[in-house]
C-alpha cells in the first residue's frame, strides 16, 4: 500500500475535493443569491445577473427605517435568548440527572422527551392556538417562549447528557473527597468541563428558536411579538405594484448573518477538547 500510496492518495484527495466543492456550492448558491438580490436596485432585480450591475444599499436602508422590521428583530432576539437561557438551564439539570443518577422512571422520561422531539409540530398548532387564546398568552413573548422551550428541551437534554456522560464520574468523587459539597463539585469541576457542551447546546437551541416560522406565524398577530421570519413574509412594497423581493432579501441577510457569526465564533470553543487529560488516555 505504501509504495503506491502517493498516486493513490492524490487521486483520492482530488475526488474528495471535487465532491466537497460540489456540496459547498450547492449549499451556498442560494445564500449568495439572496445576498446578491439584496444589493440590487428594483430595476435590475430580474435581470438574471448573479453579480449586481448596480449596487445599492437602499434595501437595507428601507428595512432598517421601518419599525415593522426593527420591532420584529427585537422580538426575535429577546424571545430566542430567553427561551435559550431557560432551556439550557433546565436541560443541564435534567441531562446531569439522566447521565449520573439512577431514579425510577428514568427510561420513561427519556422516552417521552424523545417522543416530544419527534412530534409533528403542525398537529399542535391548533390546540396551542386555542390554549394560548384562553390563557391570554396569545401574541405575547411568553406565548412563543413556552413552546420553544418545550420543543428545544429534548434537543438540549440529548446533547447535554452526551457531554455529561463523557466526563469521568471519578472527577466528581475526587471533588467530594477533596472536601466539596455536591453543589461545589458541580460548579467547580463538572460545569467548567461541560461548558463546551453547554455552548453547543445553547447555539443549537438558539438557532431552533431563531429559525422557527410555524409557531411564530400562528401564535402571534401583531408587532408586539411577531418575529423576523414572520415579519419577512408580511413585507410588501411601498405600493402594491412594487416588488418587495429586495427588502425581503436584505432582511433575510440580516437575520442569517448573526447565526453564521455565532457558529464561526463558538466553533473553536465547541471543538476545544477540554476533557482531555482528565484520566489516563
Amino acid at each position: 500500500m505504501a509504495a503506491f500510496g502517493g498516486t493513490d492518495t492524490r487521486a483520492r484527495k482530488l475526488r474528495w475535493s471535487l465532491l466537497n466543492t460540489l456540496v459547498v456550492v450547492y449549499a451556498l448558491v442560494p445564500v449568495l443569491w439572496i445576498m446578491s438580490l439584496s444589493f440590487k436596485t428594483p430595476a435590475t432585480l430580474n435581470d438574471g445577473n448573479f453579480i449586481p450591475r448596480e449596487w445599492t444599499l437602499e434595501n437595507y436602508r428601507s428595512i432598517l427605517s421601518t419599525t415593522e422590521f426593527l420591532r420584529a428583530l427585537l422580538n426575535s432576539i429577546g424571545i430566542a435568548l430567553i427561551a435559550t437561557a431557560i432551556a439550557v438551564v433546565l436541560g443541564t439539570m435534567a441531562a446531569y440527572a439522566i447521565a449520573r443518577l439512577q431514579f425510577p422512571g428514568k427510561r420513561l422520561l427519556v422516552g417521552v422527551s424523545l417522543l416530544i422531539a419527534m412530534f409533528p409540530q403542525i398537529s399542535l398548532v391548533s390546540p396551542l392556538f386555542e390554549i394560548e387564546r384562553t390563557l391570554g398568552l396569545f401574541d405575547t413573548w411568553p406565548g412563543l417562549i413556552l413552546p420553544y422551550i418545550t420543543f428545544s428541551l429534548p434537543l438540549a437534554i440529548y446533547t447535554l447528557s452526551a457531554f455529561f456522560r463523557e466526563i469521568p464520574w471519578e472527577l466528581e468523587k475526587a471533588a467530594k473527597m477533596d472536601g466539596a459539597t455536591p453543589g461545589q463539585a458541580f460548579l467547580k469541576v463538572i460545569a467548567p468541563l461541560a461548558a463546551p457542551g453547554v455552548f453547543t447546546t445553547a447555539i443549537l437551541v438558539f438557532i431552533f428558536c431563531w429559525n422557527d416560522f410555524l409557531f411564530a406565524l400562528t401564535l402571534t398577530s401583531t408587532e408586539r411579538s411577531r418575529t423576523v421570519p414572520v415579519a419577512l413574509s408580511f413585507f410588501t412594497g411601498d405600493s402594491q405594484f412594487q416588488d418587495p423581493t429586495g427588502s425581503i432579501s436584505a432582511a433575510a441577510v440580516v437575520i442569517t448573518v448573526p447565526i453564521i457569526v455565532a457558529v464561526l465564533f463558538f466553533q473553536r470553543r465547541i471543538v476545544a477538547g477540554l476533557t482531555s487529560g482528565a484520566v489516563k488516555g
Binding site: 468523587k173 475526587a174 467530594k176 477533596d178 468541563l193 482528565a278 484520566v279 489516563k280
Partner: peptide, 20 residues
C-alpha cells in the same frame, strides 16, 4: 457523614485530576 466531613484523602485509579 459526607465524604468531606471525614477528613480522608483518596487517590483514584484513573487519578481523576481536574483537566481544566
Amino acid at each position: 457523614r459526607a465524604p468531606k466531613d471525614r477528613d480522608i484523602a483518596m487517590v483514584f485509579q484513573s487519578y481523576a485530576l481536574y483537566p481544566h
